[in-house]
């Protein structure tokens, strides 16, 4: 166990020393995806506006009396898109990186950070859109935004662990790419991304309280939309991150040298 953890930390530390590699590759990835388009990476901002606009348009009539609903959806979409993209792309990570893994001695965590960086860059465009929506909705910048950024920070800290866990899952069980993809699509409806929980019973109660993604969302959203310190959400998210990182370190330590034989 100790040897496995040492191996994982060694891999991570080597990857962090090669930060210029994964930052450069992540930028190239983003550039390649939008190279021939007129708007370039701004398409990510357009996509975000389109989704938030659609949900706000469909559901705002019911909640027209609640001016915070658009902000609620805007933050919910920002966090959900980030989570769903990170997780679904992680499952096929080692397959996508097969030629690198089979042809170079780069630490495995380099690929984890390459994807993490990609997801953060993409989320940066959505974040710009989200800030604009919040400002237009009358949420001026204040100290609550600082509290919200704590939730965002936890989300970013959890990202490499999410990537490691789901990348190993995808390497060991290739079917999980489709299972996880479908679960994340359905998961949006079981997570308070666009619906508001106000004490309902039944499925919504379970979906709200027993869904770890709820706490990632609320940790970012509650300070701005409800003006409260999301102590409970941050605590749950923090414990979840620790657990996820523990699993990620074990997987990395025990199986990183076997990945090359699996892909």
């Amino acid at each position: 166990m100790i040897a496995a953890l040492n191996g994982a930390f060694d891999d991570i530390s080597k990857a962090m020393r090669l930060h210029r590699v994964w930052i450069a590759l992540a930028h190239e990835d983003i550039g390649d995806q939008h190279r021939r388009t007129t708007l370039g990476p701004l398409w990510m901002l357009v996509n975000y506006f389109a989704f938030v606009g659609t949900f706000a348009f469909v559901f705002v009539t019911k909640d027209a009396s609640n001016p915070s609903y658009i902000a609620y959806v805007a933050i919910g979409m920002l966090v959900w898109f980030y989570l769903t993209e990170t997780i679904t792309m992680s499952v096929s990570l080692f397959q996508r990186e097969a030629s690198f893994i089979q042809g170079t001695t780069l630490p495995l965590f380099v690929y984890v950070m390459r994807l993490t960086m990609q997801c953060i860059i993409r989320a940066g465009y959505s974040l710009a859109g989200c800030v604009l929506i919040l400002l237009l909705s009358g949420y001026g910048i204040n100290t609550n935004w600082l509290l919200s950024s704590v939730g965002l920070l936890l989300l970013i800290l959890a990202t490499p662990a999410f990537v490691v866990v789901f990348a190993f899952l995808g390497a060991f069980f290739p079917d999980s790419e489709f299972i996880v993809g479908n679960l994340m699509r359905v998961g949006m409806f079981f997570t308070p991304v666009f619906w508001v929980y106000s004490g309902q019973e039944g499925v919504q109660e379970y979906a709200y309280h027993w869904n770890p993604f709820t706490y990632f969302l609320e940790g970012v959203r509650e300070p701005i939309t409800a003006g409260i310190f999301p102590g409970h959400s941050l605590a749950v998210t923090g414990y979840f991150c620790l657990g996820l990182w523990a699993i990620a370190l074990l997987l990395l330590g025990l199986y990183r040298k076997r990945i090359v034989f699996l892909i």
Binding site: L18, E28, D32, R35, S99, F100, G103, T104
Partner: peptide, 24 residues
Amino acid sequence: LFNIHIGFRPEATGRRNIVLRGLI
């Protein structure tokens, strides 16, 4: 040198690819 294409990106210029290959 196992594979010519490792570390080389089709969309990037040769010059940029030298930088990427060097970093890797």
